[in-house]
């Protein structure tokens, strides 16, 4: 288990040194998007329009933050469950997205896309929203403001604490439960 400090936008080289279980402290701009925003991004791509942020090297954070109290850039901001974005992730990886940040298992299509596109899935600690918000220095809505907490935000983070859950080599951090679940 190694520890790395990485800066966005991420490169192939960044991703290829990571293995499941590694600790990553991520800095730079990351972009928030949940279910509703993903749907809109993909619809925009279908229409041949530009996505709301550059996908090349991007890290997408699956988060719908709480409102920012006065004097703070953002409210509580921990990860949401990632499987709901599985339908969209492979396409975004093919278009250059290098990392997604969330919690919970990904499906086989996403894991394959990580291998094919040299990308990585990071886990942040679910339910640690107050703590994680301290590592977000700036936040600005850049698209789909009408979605409220689900709007796309550009967030400037410093040393955002992550664990590599799925790497680009098929490695996974989540354990298999001690129970035979069949196929």
């Amino acid at each position: 288990m190694s520890e790395y400090r990485l800066q966005t936008p991420l490169t192939d080289e960044d991703v290829m040194k990571l293995r499941a279980g590694d600790v990553v402290l991520l800095s730079g701009l990351i972009y928030s998007a949940r279910d509703a925003a993903h749907k809109k991004i993909v619809e925009a791509l279908d229409r041949g329009e530009a996505p709301p942020f550059p996908l090349e090297g991007a890290a997408i954070y699956y988060v719908g933050p709480a409102p920012a109290p006065p004097g703070r850039p953002i409210g509580s901001a921990g990860p949401t469950t990632s499987y709901r974005m599985d339908a969209y992730a492979p396409r975004l990886h093919r278009l250059g997205v290098k990392a997604t940040i969330g919690k919970g298992r990904r499906n086989e299509e996403v894991k394959q896309a990580l291998k094919d596109c040299k990308a990585v899935y990071f886990g942040a600690t679910g339910g640690a929203g107050a703590l994680l918000s301290q590592r977000i220095e700036k936040s600005r809505v850049i698209a789909f403001e009408e979605l409220g907490p689900e709007a796309v935000r550009a967030m400037k983070v410093t040393d955002f604490p992550l664990l590599v859950v799925n790497d680009a080599f098929g490695g996974e951090l989540y354990v298999k439960p001690n129970l035979d679940l069949g196929a």
Binding site: V63, G126, G129, A130
Partner: peptide
Amino acid sequence: NADLAMQTKLPLCQ
């Protein structure tokens, strides 16, 4: 996180 939420009055979870 629990300590921070208590101090800052930020919600424990978003």
